[in-house]
Simulated scan of single mutants.
Amino acid sequence: MNTLTLIATCPMGLEALVARELKELGYETRTENGRVCFEGELEDIARTNLWLRTADRVLIKMGEFPATTFDELFEGTKALDWPDWIPEHGEFPVEGRSHKSQLSSVPACQGIVKKAVVEKMKQRYHHEWFAEDGPRYVIEVSLLNDIAMLTLDTTGPSLHKRGYRRVATEAPLKETMAAAMIQLSRWRPERPLYDPFCGSGTLAIEAALIGWNIAPGIRRSFSSEAWPIIGESNWERVREEAYDAVKDDIELEITGSDIDPGAIEIARAAAKKAGLGGEISFQHLPVNKAVPLGDYGCLLTNPPYGQRLGDDREAETAVRQLGTLAKRLPTWSMFAISPAKSFEHYFGRAADKKRKLYNGRIECALYQYLGPLPPRNRTDS
């Protein structure tokens, strides 16, 4: 099989982080809005699904062509090599979206693509009807400015679903966004990390996964694991590589606290499920009682806000207390994600840097307060 064009999708604003992750894995990339494209082979489908921390999905680009009429969409879709990927018993639902295109009816476009794929399958398998009771191959037709792009989803449930969190608190932070915040903070495992509004523990757990170099997808399955074309051997090889890469001899100082005792129980259960129950400390504490230990640490958090929890006054108090805590930690850096335009006012000072991010569909800012870097050891020089 020829080299594949693969696409790692992500929320707007995280493209540079996804590209950096892919480059660290050894891929050349090109970045577009909401996605990063790269070339790879069958094994790379498995490797990137297992390792990407800030992406949502890994897609195979099947083809791209102009489509201003349903006939063009049908013929362009039919020309692609669907039976090379989808076996005769495969399930192949079609999803779609359209933006600034003449073919604006998404259900109609989905129907046309489905019909075209069926016709292509008939040519290969010589059946008039397909049971679709085998492995799942989700096809997406995406129309933008009258250009149709057809992809296959190799991931299944979004990559933020790592498999360690069975229950969540009222307003959880997505695992992919938590990983993005940690990467943007440039935290390193030799530095303490504290989350005073830890909720279900996502930031702390993602930090521990990064600190020990644990592939975020190592404990979950993916839809393309059932695809005969990729094969079990490719998945077994990349999983074995991932287990070999774990650095569980590194000592971590990661702590989370929350005023909600139920959240702490959820966080502890999630950490245990992730295999990190003994490496992260979770405490039932209000933020004004938090006492982070150590110097030159990173305080990363997703504080409550009115839009999220429905109480503006409570949210303002929480941010004021966070600002008071930060004053007690002169050598620490602090990073907080919030949609509140008044965050800096209640925190008590302007951020050194701000970065626009989207927590789900909510536009937020990552407020960055940069403390001094840890002093270098003489042996480092």
Rank of each mutant, 00 (worst) to 15 (best):
L4D: 02
T9D: 03
P11S: 13
E15W: 01
E15A: 01
A16H: 09
E21Q: 05
E24C: 11
G34Y: 01
R35D: 06
E39D: 11
W51A: 02
W51P: 00
D56A: 07
F65G: 03
F70Y: 15
F70H: 15
K78A: 10
A79G: 03
W82S: 04
P83R: 04
G90W: 09
F92T: 10
G96I: 09
K100A: 12
S101P: 04
Q102W: 12
C109V: 12
G111N: 14
K114P: 04
K114Y: 14
K120D: 02
W129N: 11
F130D: 11
E132D: 14
D133V: 12
G134E: 10
G134C: 13
I139G: 15
L143R: 02
I147R: 11
M149P: 11
T151S: 07
K161R: 15
R162K: 12
R162L: 04
R165Y: 04
A168Y: 05
T176A: 01
M181G: 01
R188E: 10
P189E: 07
D195I: 04
S200R: 14
I205M: 09
R220V: 06
F222G: 02
E225P: 03
A226N: 14
W227I: 02
W227M: 12
I230C: 11
G231V: 05
N234S: 06
A245Q: 09
I250T: 14
E253R: 14
G262P: 08
I266W: 08
A267Y: 03
I280V: 07
I280D: 10
S281W: 15
P286K: 13
A290M: 09
L293A: 15
G294D: 00
T301G: 02
R308M: 09
R313C: 08
A318L: 03
K341N: 06
F347E: 05
D352C: 00
K354N: 00
G360I: 01
P372F: 15
P372Y: 09
P374G: 07
T379C: 14
